[in-house]
Amino acid sequence: MNGDEEKMTVIVQTIAALLFPITLIFSFYVIMHGHLTPGGGFQGGAIGASAIVLLIVAYGVRNIEKRMKEENLSIFESLGGLIFVVVSIFGIFLATAFLANFLVGKAIFGQIPAWGEAPLNSGGVLPILNIAVGMKVIGGLSAVVMLLALITKEGER
């Protein structure tokens, strides 16, 4: 069973292959700068999932599904949720409460920005939580779209 008949035209494939890395890099930018600029984990994750969905629409599900299993995407999503909960629980032991911002004022991420500055290592645990939610949303939304696209091809097999 080859998936050649479910590809779109060559123009769409070329444009999708050109746009995929740019969109993914923009999504990583939005996730990493979530505590400085508008955006954050959910927004950047939606952009990254839309990059993968662009590939799925342009090249057909089965060609993408050979390279990118939806189980691995699901594991990626669960890893994001695990990071979120573990960082939240560290707040109980290292600070006062669940989800407390225990890194602010400390070594790595703890710089408090002065007026007009935007250092990347500020914000305490917020960048880590942003990355966790971004992993969750990228893995989850693309896994859902990939499964929904696979289930429409199920009857033709």
Partner: peptide
């Protein structure tokens, strides 16, 4: 001053109202 993040929306979503995000 409290969270160290320039973007106050992120500090509300992930810090003050972290349970909502969870």
């Amino acid at each position: 001053e409290e969270t160290g993040a320039n973007n106050v929306v992120t500090s509300v979503v992930f810090d003050y109202r972290g349970y909502d995000t969870l």
